[in-house]
Design a protein around this nucleic acid. Sequence first.
DNA 1: AGCGTACTGTTCCTATTCGGAATACCGGAG
DNA 2: CTCCGGTATTCCGAATAGGAACAGTACGCT
Lengths: 175, 175
Amino acid sequence: MTSYALLSLLVIDSDNQDGLTGYELKQRADFTLRFYWVSPAMSQIYTELDRLRSHAYVSTEEEASGRRPTRRFRITSAGRTALTTWLHEPTDDFPVLKHPVALRLMLGAMMGADEVAAMLDRYEEALVERRRELEAVREMLGDRESVAYAARVADWGLTFFDAEATAIERTRDSL
Amino acid sequence: MTSYALLSLLVIDSDNQDGLTGYELKQRADFTLRFYWVSPAMSQIYTELDRLRSHAYVSTEEEASGRRPTRRFRITSAGRTALTTWLHEPTDDFPVLKHPVALRLMLGAMMGADEVAAMLDRYEEALVERRRELEAVREMLGDRESVAYAARVADWGLTFFDAEATAIERTRDSL
DNA sequence: AGCGTACTGTTCCTATTCGGAATACCGGAG
DNA sequence: CTCCGGTATTCCGAATAGGAACAGTACGCT
C-alpha cells in the first residue's frame, strides 16, 4: 500500500520535470501524506523506491555532479498505468485508527478523573496544533481546480479533527 | 504498545478467574480493540504473551486436560503495576489514521467523478455496518458504572463514525 | 458407534512497516 | 577555512501484519 502512496506523491509532483529524491519524498510525506496515512520511515521510502524501480514504475536519474551519487525519481507511464489500475479496482479496505488516547481512556478507572482530564487537555492542545498545520495546507491549496481533490482530502481531515475536539468535549462533560 | 493493549484486555477481564487463551484474546480484540486500535495478528498476540510472561506481567496455567496443551493467561500484580505506570506517564503520541479512501480521493482526478462517487457510496455502506456493530457494543455496556470508561470510548468511536459520514456528505456535495 | 464439520488453540513463515542511527557530502555564515 | 545545519542514502534491529498449517475438541447426525 505504501508503494501506491509514494506513487501518488510522485504523480502529483509529475509536472515538475526533475523528479524527487528520496529525501524530498519524505518531506512531502511529512507535509501532507501524514494527515490521512502515515509518513513512511526513510528506510521504507528507499526500499519502496527500489521495488518500484524493479517494476519500472519509476525511473531514476543519477546526478553524479559532485562525488556523491544522488538519485531523482520520476513516475513512468507504466507507473501511471499501475496506479490507475489500482484506483479502478474497488477495495473494501476500511480506515485504521490507532488512538492512544482512547486506549488509555479505556482504563480511565485506573487513572483517576483528574489525570484523565489532564490527558484530554494535552491531547486537545496537540490537536489544535495539528489542525492549524492542516489548515495552513488547506489555505495553500485555495480553490484552484488543479488541486481540488487535495483540497477535499484536507477538508476531510479538518472534519476529523473537529470531531476529535467534539469527542474531547463530550468526554470531559461526562466525567 | 501492543503489549499494553493486550494487558488492558487482560485487566478488563481480570474479574474472571480463569484467564484467557490467546485465541480468546484475539476474539476480544476483534470485538472491541479494533475500534480504537487494531486487532493484532494471532502471531503477534502469542509473541507478546511470551514477552509479557518473560516479564512476569502475566501468569500462565497449563490445561493438560486432554492431550493438547492449552494455556490460559492472567495478569499478575506486577503486570498491573506496569500498566499503571504506563498510564501515569504522560505521552505525546498522536492518533494515527490510515485512510484508504482519502488516499484514493487524493487522486480523484485520475478516477473521474462517477467512480469517486461510487467509492464514497461503498465506503458509506461499510461505515453504516461498522457503526451498527459499535452501537451494539455500546448498548451492551449500558450505563453501568463499572464499564463507564469503555462506554466513553465507544461513544468516542461513534462520534468518529458520524464525522466520517459528514465528510462523505460534504465531499459528495463538492463534486 | 462412526463420521463430518465447525470451532478452538497454537505455531510457523514471510513480508511489510517502523524508528532512528550512522555516514557522508554540500553550502553558507562567521 | 571551519563549523554547522540541511541534504541524501544506507543500514540495522525490532515490531507489526496476515494467514497458512497443524492439531485437537465438541457436537449433531445417521
